[in-house]
């Protein structure tokens, strides 16, 4: 996907997120932050010429160490934020650890660090 296509999907997902509530829908809000965040990250990487369309990041933990290091040099805050959202999934999305709504709030805050500031 090209940068403008990633942006369009991220914006769509964020519109859908507004139909969810932290208190009741924390699983899907965390998943949505992860999905939208990965599209924002790919848009930024493509726009900066660090990666090309067709060479998208799906999850930060699926990157090789070298890829992760390279992309983190380009987008350190966004890479770290997406990784932090991904790390919430075992406990609060797949699992039922206490604190799901608070985790969703944190995920939404982290998403704002991945979204380009000019959006």
């Amino acid at each position: 996907m090209h940068a403008h296509e990633h942006r369009a999907v991220a914006e769509r997902i964020e519109r859908s997120m507004r139909k969810c509530r932290e208190a009741h829908d924390h699983e899907l809000l965390i998943e949505a932050a992860m999905l939208a965040g990965s599209h924002w990250l790919n848009a930024r990487l493509h726009e900066d010429g660090v990666s090309s369309a067709g060479d998208d990041v799906m999850h930060t933990y699926l990157l090789t160490v070298n890829q992760h290091r390279r992309l983190s040099v380009s987008q350190p805050e966004a890479m770290q934020a997406l990784g932090a959202i991904e790390d919430m999934r075992p406990a609060f999305v797949r699992g039922d650890a206490p604190g799901g709504p608070e985790a969703a709030r944190r995920a939404i805050g982290l998403l704002s660090k991945i979204r380009p500031t000019h959006q």
Binding site: R12, R15, S16, M17, K19, C20, L35
Partner: peptide, 18 residues
């Protein structure tokens, strides 16, 4: 819980989250 959330989403407009 997930079905309740899904029921508030439009399968087309919100396809990704649905």
């Amino acid at each position: 819980r997930l079905l309740q959330t899904r029921s508030r989403l439009d399968p087309s407009a919100d396809f990704e989250l649905w």
